[in-house]
Write a protein that binds this DNA or RNA. Structure first.
Lengths: 189, 189
DNA sequence: GTCTATATTTCGATAGAC
DNA sequence: GTCTATCGAAATATAGAC
């Protein structure tokens, strides 16, 4: 009788995500993952080709979660409000999983082979809002402006780049308001 | 008679910057730097405490160069034009030195101890334009919106995150126009 | 200041028994 | 599928002669 399974691919990926958050990408070693799931390191290679494969799986799972979070924001009646909600949801996600967020948006090496479907699902809500705000013709440019600003803000925040004081939450809300107006072309109150 | 100097701190830092661009931060090993400057690896430790110290020196030199580039843009009569010029200069710098740019704006580990003076000089032009456009009261928030957008755009571009087609240069120009309007509150033509 | 030699450590990955 | 044992490859950093 063969040895019964003592772990699973799911458990390995989840352990990897946990370790990523607690020890960073450098601390995400096969040994650490093995310890956490309760097997010896060589056993991991029965379910994962190599470390790069594991990193890809973790990235994919993270993008999937992000997609669900953004989809959960849903489409309301006001695209301006939707954009604000999406922006806040993105930032909240980044605060929950800073290392995972960085892995997705600032990959040190090309993760290559990310699920296009998963990726598309995550981007869709932003594209929709961008089209509603700026018009179909400018949808892509608008989406890129939104994404660039939000991701740039969050990345710098996570990196501790905002060192001149001031309220970071307020700065983010300021950006939401101004970006929204700039894309919709509506005047401020 | 002691052995004459066969290298210098300057040469070491410059070699490090070159290697960073050609081989990435992971390829920036003491061995690689030593090979390039023409000494044996242990000799580097006479001028650099350790690898982290070298990374800090490289980062500092990169920020210094960026500061000079942005300062060279200068202040014209139209802050809107100045902002556009600064944004383009930042992107051009990133294209020239992508790895160095990422090292500065997306540090994998806290470089700690960056020269505050060097950093301030790089940020100053943006702060000035932000204040002129959005007013002193909103200067910091506006500067953060500008920086977040530009850095986010460039970071995603360098990471190859813009995969839905379209013209990237045009998307950047689109962002410049809209962000400028958003901060100045002036209507589009 | 530069060198040779080497200590240390760490990590990814494989071989082969059970 | 899991294990023990181990290989192999890096890379940082130090010791001590010259």
């Amino acid at each position: 009788m063969p040895t019964p399974d003592r772990t699973s691919l799911e458990a390995i990926v989840q352990a990897g995500r946990d370790i990523l958050e607690s020890a960073g990408v450098a601390g995400l070693t096969m040994q650490a993952v093995a310890d956490r799931v309760g097997v010896r390191a060589p056993s991991l290679y029965k379910r994962v080709r190599d470390r790069a494969d594991l990193l890809r799986l973790i990235t994919d799972a993270t993008v999937h979660d992000l997609g669900e979070r953004l989809a959960a924001v849903g489409a309301g009646t006001d695209p301006r409000r939707d954009l604000a909600d999406l922006a806040r949801a993105l930032r909240a996600f980044a605060h929950d999983r800073p290392k995972g967020y960085q892995l997705v948006f600032t990959p040190s090496s090309d993760p290559g082979g990310l699920s296009a479907e998963t990726l598309g699902r995550a981007v869709a809500p932003v594209m929709r809002v961008a089209a509603e705000l700026a018009g179909e013709h400018h949808a892509l440019d608008a989406a890129r402006t939104i994404t660039a600003w939000a991701n740039g803000f969050i990345s710098m925040e996570l990196a501790g780049a905002f060192q001149l004081g001031g309220d970071i939450d307020e700065a983010y809300e300021f950006g939401i308001v101004r970006i929204t107006e700039a894309l919709s072309g509506r005047p401020r109150n």
